[in-house]
Design a protein around this nucleic acid. Structure first.
Lengths: 158, 158
DNA sequence: CGGTCGCTGTACAACTTGACCAGCAGATCA
DNA sequence: TGATCTGCTGGTCAAGTTGTACAGCGACCG
């Protein structure tokens, strides 16, 4: 799915000011309301925009500590480990990867001490051979998508 | 900031069906509209809900390959490396961490071949001593927050 | 006891939404 | 060349939602 320049501007506008509606967006972008509506529908149907769910900050919820754990899995235990990790609320994300480890997961915890509890719960499962954890100190680039959207929009013909 | 059970249900409801408005949410939750409005305002003011921006899927944008790169940085070059990585659109996220590496970043690319280009651009910077990359094969647990919200809501007094 | 707080239920004007429509410009194709 | 398609425009309409305000009420606290 390729997006054009107007799509890119629309996504960037919605990312900056999510509370504005279709009508206000059409005014800002200088196009007709129907156009914005059609573009939005298309972007959502095609899956480029997955939704407009609330973005929750774990730190504000009382989980200020983030860590990444690389897990090494016993052969054939992948599915079990996945199911196990899916039951741990502090596991925000789980990927299977190439490279030294077999899985990479993102964890949060209430404190460094609490992180120990979370890690114990994560690795307290027989399919996991080894785990190595990296605690996040700073987050110079928070999860972002706008630069990529702009690049994708710029690549496409206007 | 602690949240109570109603806050938790509200966040979960909005995460499941973001398109519903305040009025519909109040009907679903069985409370008055003003209550939902007040809770939402409070959650946003306190930073628990950062916003309702569009959730863009990089894969649908033409970037189906995700990878995590662990970077080792030359002493004292941290700030320069951060600035450098912030200029690369394919860098979606950057953390400084404890552990073997000094930084961990999330990358996307148009293909495995394109990933090479992205990595070259990322590590083509003198402050970076070594990089090791793990390509994501599967994503058994996509970035989620609801289980954590439910735990945070359950912990608080109702 | 009086004060404060949060929730309810109501009201109102102003606005937005979703759904239409006809017209029009540009691209495509036989 | 002319016919057709697609996408954008600018307009309409009814229905619904929003923001804001208000008074009442129960719970909690010093």
């Amino acid at each position: 799915m390729a997006i054009d320049h107007l799509d890119g501007r629309l996504i960037a506008l919605l990312a900056r000011e999510p509370r504005i509606g279709v009508l206000e967006a059409s005014r800002r972008l200088g196009v007709a309301r129907g156009t914005v509506q059609a573009r939005l529908d298309r972007l959502q149907d095609s899956g480029v925009i997955r939704g407009f769910g609330p973005q929750v900050d774990p730190a504000a919820l009382g989980y200020p500590v983030t860590a990444f754990a690389t897990l090494e899995i016993k052969q054939g235990q992948g599915a079990d480990v996945r199911n196990h990790l899916a039951t741990v609320p502090e596991v925000l994300e789980l990927h299977t990867t190439t490279g030294h480890g077999d899985m990479l997961c993102r964890l949060v915890a209430r404190s460094n001490a609490d992180l120990q509890r979370v890690i114990d719960r994560v690795v307290g499962f027989e399919g996991i051979v080894r785990a190595s954890t990296a605690i996040v100190m700073e987050n110079p680039v928070p999860l972002r998508i706008i630069p990529l959207v702009e690049q994708a929009a710029g690549d496409a013909p206007l």
